[in-house]
């Protein structure tokens, strides 16, 4: 048994495997298939200050080795989460991380302030990069100023671990990473979905109601690995890698590129038990390579 435990800021994970926001519901949806307690942690759906209905159907289309989505942050709002969902998941023996979204800086602050008193929520992941919301989300994540503004505000509003989730839809992701590091972010996670588009040529109209949407799945993996590698060389804070991880091999690839933890997203749809297999594979891999501690190989490249 190799040591798989890693730290992200003050947050201790029993292993580097997290689940990606928006692909794992509130965790409960997967409890028939996996033991949630075995996860390093799970990151729940994007949560906003008010209830959001999200975008109209159709919101999804399969694309080569991936999918485009335009869910648009459908959620019942942070109060509903605190009153109805939190009590059901707070006793799980794993980290519960809430993904926070907003259209204005004040929105982010308001959600953070409501989450801060919850004992089980020791970390938040701040989505400054969702491409589906007309205002706010995209703009914050695509400029250094915007990203820094949000990072600074949530740093003040949330005293525990703050992870900033970066958008790949930028010219130089390392600049954004440095900007949020400078404002006190404890870690960055990347990548969110890549902006994409797909057209139904028979009906001569876009497949998604919003025309464009976010690409995820193995199609984005090489882009994600490259960005994780670049960012891990640009900042000192921990990097959490994701984008198209389908199995344990892919997860190790991200670790070697510089990620100290990884998230599994779209792969949960295809195999809801995949996270357990990834944890087992990591242990196997370490044993096979004579690695005593997974931290030894973080950023080996």
């Amino acid at each position: 048994m190799a040591n798989l435990a890693v730290n992200i800021g003050n947050l201790s994970l029993k292993n580097p495997v997290l689940t990606a926001s928006g692909t794992f519901g509130y965790g409960e949806e997967f409890s028939d298939f996996i033991d949630l307690n075995r996860l390093g942690g799970f990151i729940i759906k994007g949560t906003t200050i008010n209830h959001r209905e999200g975008n109209p159907y159709p919101r999804m289309i399969e694309t080569p080795s991936g999918m485009l989505n335009a869910v648009g942050l459908q959620n019942k709002g942070v109060d509903y989460f605190i009153n109805n969902i939190y009590p059901r998941i707070k006793d799980v023996d794993s980290n519960v991380i809430v993904n926070v979204s907003g259209a204005t800086v004040d929105d982010y602050i308001a959600v953070c302030e409501k989450l801060a008193p919850l004992d089980k929520i020791n970390a938040i992941e701040v989505n400054i990069s969702c491409p589906n919301v007309k205002q706010g989300g995209m703009a914050f994540g695509t400029t250094c100023d915007g990203a820094a503004q949000v990072a600074k505000a949530v740093r003040q509003a949330f005293p525990k671990t703050v992870i900033i989730k970066l958008s790949p839809n930028v010219t130089d992701i390392t600049e954004i990473a440095r900007a949020v590091e400078a404002e006190g972010a404890d870690a960055v996670s990347l990548i969110n979905t890549l902006l994409g588009m797909s057209i139904d040529i028979e009906r001569q109209r876009p497949h998604l109601s919003t025309i464009t949407g976010g690409l995820s799945g193995p199609a984005v993996r090489p882009v994600a690995v490259r960005m994780v590698w670049q960012v891990s060389h640009a900042v000192k804070i921990p990097v959490i890698g994701l984008g198209g991880i389908m199995n344990g091999l892919d997860a190790i690839e991200f670790i070697l590129a510089g990620a100290c933890a990884i998230q599994v997203g779209t792969a949960n749809f295809i195999d809801p038990s995949v996270t357990m297999k990834i944890i087992d594979y990591m242990d196997d891999y370490c044993n096979r390579h004579g690695i005593n501690d997974i931290n030894e190989i973080v950023g080996l490249i």
Partner: peptide, 17 residues
């Protein structure tokens, strides 16, 4: 028969108004 990704209530892709 809406388009589905997960089938488990996790992705919110299959919604009907």
């Amino acid at each position: 028969e809406n388009m589905m990704a997960c089938g488990l209530g996790a992705c919110l892709c299959c919604v009907e108004n």
